[in-house]
Design a protein around this nucleic acid. Sequence first.
DNA 1: CACTAATTATTAGTGCACTAACAATTAGTG
DNA 2: CACTAATTGTTAGTGCACTAATAATTAGTG
Lengths: 154, 154
Amino acid sequence: MSTPAEDDLLLERQLCFALTVASRSVVGIYKPVLERMGLTHPQYLVMLALWERSPRTLKDISDALLHEPATLSPILRRLEEAGLLTRERVPGNERALAVTLTEAGAALREQATAVPGTIMERLGLSREEVAELHAAMTGLIAATQRPAPATLPG
Amino acid sequence: MSTPAEDDLLLERQLCFALTVASRSVVGIYKPVLERMGLTHPQYLVMLALWERSPRTLKDISDALLHEPATLSPILRRLEEAGLLTRERVPGNERALAVTLTEAGAALREQATAVPGTIMERLGLSREEVAELHAAMTGLIAATQRPAPATLPG
DNA sequence: CACTAATTATTAGTGCACTAACAATTAGTG
DNA sequence: CACTAATTGTTAGTGCACTAATAATTAGTG
């Protein structure tokens, strides 16, 4: 027999609880490391996207980070205030916003190269263990994006 | 040779990115389910803690949920406004806040028993797969709470 | 060209999570 | 008892994330 559904409401058994705690805890590990670069964690993710390609439109960054443009707007505004990027309309399509790294923004990548190693060491995880956890998360994300199973007719 | 550290800054390889997306995505799955009960996800976690034991002090709930009391205060205030719990000082220790389920709060557990099954079905995950993911998250949380390795003298 | 629809960003409002500062009570010490 | 320290909560302020509403531009249609 399987585990009784009786205990399904125990806090310590909730995946959603473990997941939110893990997310907050891991981001908390990044915090002191990123602070030296003057970045918050969401700002760091935006910079990662721009270090891969610049300029990019807000829409493009929004798709890459799986964030609403409304969430990214204030983050980009702060990064612009910090002098790491510029925001200007795309010539020929005034609806789109072109986000471009400044020299300072591009230069910050140097410091960032040390971050992943620092975090792995801090967590005491090997590259392989990180890859396994990453794969597990990717699978879970895929599960959330699958269409909901059809409900039985009531 | 191991994977070159050159690509360590690729967004798609970041565990922290996958983790925050997974957390948001899973909580997003809960949202419509909990909305029918009038709860947000953090409120749901507080209710889970109280369904296990009531009354509990704020400090006790804070320890169980790994949340600062400052984070829980406004959540508890809203749950009190919703009539699901009461907040009063502990007789004999005026510093502590006793949080107690009301009848309505206790009764809400009936509806909640269906939640875990609904979510598992929605995610298309078996009880075993959920348990595996939960164990992975628990291990990751433990990693964040271990003391940082000693830094080499520079 | 005029009208409509779609795309793209921004702003306002709600709620969570954190730190820092503050207030209040309780416990410990001489 | 008076003084100090520790415990416990609350409030203020910053920032993230979402939805809804709005605005502006662009594309499509007759």
